[in-house]
């Protein structure tokens, strides 16, 4: 049984189970070596092909990205938001008395279902203004978010859903 199963799996996945992972491994290797020599490039390619094959049992599904333009636009938007978030939080820390902060927990209902999309959303929420994602409900349909200063929880939920979740839905689903 194991022979047949292995053969069919090999047919399905081929030598390049995760092209994205391979590409990023090569890139990281080149950045780490800080050079573009032929030797480093070859070694990077060997690592980029070998590691995904070796670890493919741990990550069976292939990640599908629908539109790379959307990924680029999302990344630029998030980087801008990170800078704004930093300034925002710095202002809260410096100029607001601690007792005046309205910290509270908010639960955000999710429409995303793939684990990768939820991971990206949780990471984005943590890096953006005044919110840290803390937990996921057991069935993966709600995200627990802690807000540093939330006068209006409805508005925060709405912002997370329209600004980030809708775009991630475009990218992943």
């Amino acid at each position: 049984m194991s022979d047949r199963a292995t053969a069919s799996a090999a047919d399905k996945r081929g030598w390049l189970p995760h092209p994205l992972l391979s590409a990023s491994l090569v890139l990281v290797w080149l950045l780490l070596q800080n050079s573009l020599d032929l030797g480093n490039l070859l070694l990077g390619l060997v690592l980029g092909l070998g590691i995904p094959l070796w670890t493919s049992g741990l990550w069976p599904k292939r990640l599908r990205v629908k539109s790379w333009v959307a990924v680029l636009r999302y990344s630029v938007m998030v980087i801008g938001d990170i800078v704004l978030a930093n300034i925002d939080v710095a202002r809260l820390i410096l100029f607001r008395r601690a007792s005046e902060l309205r910290t509270r927990w908010v639960s955000v209902p999710l429409e995303l279902s793939s684990p990768e999309a939820i991971t990206v959303l949780a990471g984005t929420v943590t890096m953006t203004p005044g919110t840290v994602s803390c937990d996921l409900s057991a069935d993966g349909r709600y995200l627990l978010v802690h807000c540093l200063d939330a006068p209006d929880t409805e508005q925060i939920v709405r912002e997370i859903k329209t600004r980030y979740e809708a775009r991630l839905k475009e990218i992943f689903e």
Binding site: A138, Y142, L144
Partner: peptide
């Protein structure tokens, strides 16, 4: 806050 259905992970 309690999510509908199941509790937190």
């Amino acid at each position: 806050p309690r999510p509908d259905g199941h509790g937190w992970g």
